[in-house]
């Protein structure tokens, strides 16, 4: 078991009223799963995703990640945990525009204080694997959306995470580019990486082995 959510509630207080963002979420994710989270706008998909990624908190319930209780952890411990095991992919890529493709990929390794030789090897390997060696010295704005997202996925993968969280990874791409990314996810999943993605598209959702539907913060 990779992670488990028990009776998770998340709310905000607005004008004397409590508005629930997530209500009583129970979810178990095994290693190697590929899950799509679906639902209309405002149903809490992204909130759930970032909660899983430990970037966002919750108000009630328990969250265990690799048997460790996330809900009782200190912030520092929590961030170490997600840095170690989780990679993020965003709809708008969120690459650092001032860094080249190579440097963007290198960044997470630098933060992990990995030695120069190993860094080079890993980055070169990743460029090779994603077929973007020719682009290594370009800056993100010089790439197409699909290529940028490719770099985004590569960056998420470079520190060998167990889990990839993707927030509408194809939302800014045309259908052909989107398809390529989905194929890539499928392949990664077959290599053993657990993937949870938020998507609007039925077609993309169908790449997953399991689909979770949310409505008004509730799993249905």
């Amino acid at each position: 078991m990779l992670l488990q959510l028990n009776n998770i509630f998340k709310w905000v207080n607005s004008g004397g009223q409590r508005i629930f963002l997530l209500k009583d979420i129970n979810l178990t994710v095994e290693e190697g799963e590929f899950i799509s989270i679906m639902g209309p706008s405002g149903s809490g998909k992204s909130t759930l995703l970032y909660l899983l990624g430990m970037l966002d908190g919750f108000d009630e319930g328990e969250y265990h990640f690799l048997e460790e209780p996330v809900h009782t952890m200190k912030e520092k411990h929590r961030s170490n945990l997600y840095k170690e095991y989780i990679g993020f992919v965003f709809q708008s890529y969120h690459l650092l525009d001032e860094l080249t493709v190579w440097e963007n990929l290198e960044m997470p390794l630098l933060y992990k204080k990995i030695g120069s030789a190993e860094r080079k090897a890993k980055v070169a390997d990743m460029l090779d694997r994603f077929n973007i060696v020719a682009k290594k010295d370009l800056f993100p704005p010089q790439l197409s959306g699909g290529q940028q997202q490719l770099v985004g996925v590569a960056r998420a993968l470079i520190s060998n995470p167990k889990l990839i969280l993707a927030d509408e990874p194809t939302g800014n791409l045309n259908s052909k580019q989107g398809e390529e990314i989905m194929e890539l996810f499928k392949q990664l999943n077959s290599e053993g990486v657990t993937i949870i993605q938020v998507t609007h598209s039925e077609k993309n959702a169908s790449y997953a082995s399991r689909v979770i539907n949310l409505l008004d913060g509730r799993m249905i």
Binding site: L55, F88, H94, L95, P108, K112, S159
Partner: peptide, 16 residues
């Protein structure tokens, strides 16, 4: 601010 967010997500500590 955006850069800060990205860096944190990909592994930067506050101190860094």
């Amino acid at each position: 601010a955006e850069e800060v967010g990205i860096r944190k997500v990909i592994g930067s500590s506050k101190l860094q």
